[in-house]
Nucleic acid binder design. Structure first.
Lengths: 148, 148
DNA sequence: CCTTTGTCATTGCGAGCGCAGCGAAGCAAT
DNA sequence: ATTGCTTCGCTGCGCTCGCAATGACAAAGG
């Protein structure tokens, strides 16, 4: 018999993974059904919704997603005419991506839905808890990445 | 221009996903390198380490993983002789899975490593923060799943 | 210039994940 | 016993993910 045991339910990375998965699935289904967007696509739109055109490289940084993920999401959005690729003035390899008219109207439709959805999800926790949570998540992320 | 904007960095599901991914990658690499285990395999061992033989169905419930994931993990562990499949006395379709001698010795080697790893990851947060975190994760998970 | 080295976007490919569907076995009801 | 329904483990298959390699262009050094 083992000297020491371990309870999976009390294991933080496990619980974090379960929670993240549950939320992701729920949100992914919602965005897919209502707007036809996958999560990476939605994330690009969220960043481009800040107003400034960005290159894929910049989007990778902003969304923390893989460059391939960003590329494919951008491709899908461009095909649906939700974003436009403007040639880069100085760098011939790169493009500036920005929301089109259609993109903006979809964005305007999504934002309230996203906020409402988040409000509902967080209806069980207090503002203080939320703040604590965000701080801890930042610490854990940093710790995991620093480890290297 | 959009009526309302949205900052991705302040979006909880996004931050949760980033954190979970960062931790998962780090842990997956560690288990893979040191013990040749993938995360689903490690989770099965963690549950079986409680001592009671379990069927795949029970493992699905305990680990919250898909039945296919559990099946493949069990297959891999059985091939490495880390777990044994005992025929089920009453139900001919099912088997009882339990750790073998070899399985136990690997388990005994992993547990201290897992605990040390978690301790290090959590060295930046207090016990109170950890407790808050766990409680919130449970609430969020429940909220996301209830939505259905 | 021209070569080398670096950077941005893209494509190739393998790994992982999970739904849907299958056969085998149990269970219920007649 | 037979029929129909459920449950267990397993396989097929499609989708997503991300590393690695490629192609196009840029920048730096001779």
């Amino acid at each position: 018999m083992a000297a020491k045991k371990l309870n999976l339910d009390n294991f933080l990375p496990y619980r974090l993974s379960i929670a993240s998965n549950a939320l992701s699935e729920r949100i992914a289904a919602e965005y897919q059904n209502r707007f036809g967007l996958k999560i990476p696509e939605w994330r690009l739109m969220a960043v481009l919704g800040e107003g400034k055109p960005k290159t894929q490289r910049e989007l990778v940084e902003a969304t923390r997603m893989d460059k391939v993920t960003v590329n494919r999401a951008a491709k899908a959005l461009a095909e649906r005419q939700l974003i436009a690729r403007q040639a880069h003035e100085v760098d011939g390899r790169s493009h500036h991506l920005e929301l089109t008219e259609t993109g903006w109207s979809l964005y305007d439709a999504i934002v309230p839905a996203a906020l409402a959805s988040e409000t509902q999800l967080e209806s069980n926790i207090t503002a203080a808890e939320r703040a604590t949570m965000m701080a801890i998540l930042a610490k854990l992320t940093a710790a995991a990445e620093d480890y290297a």
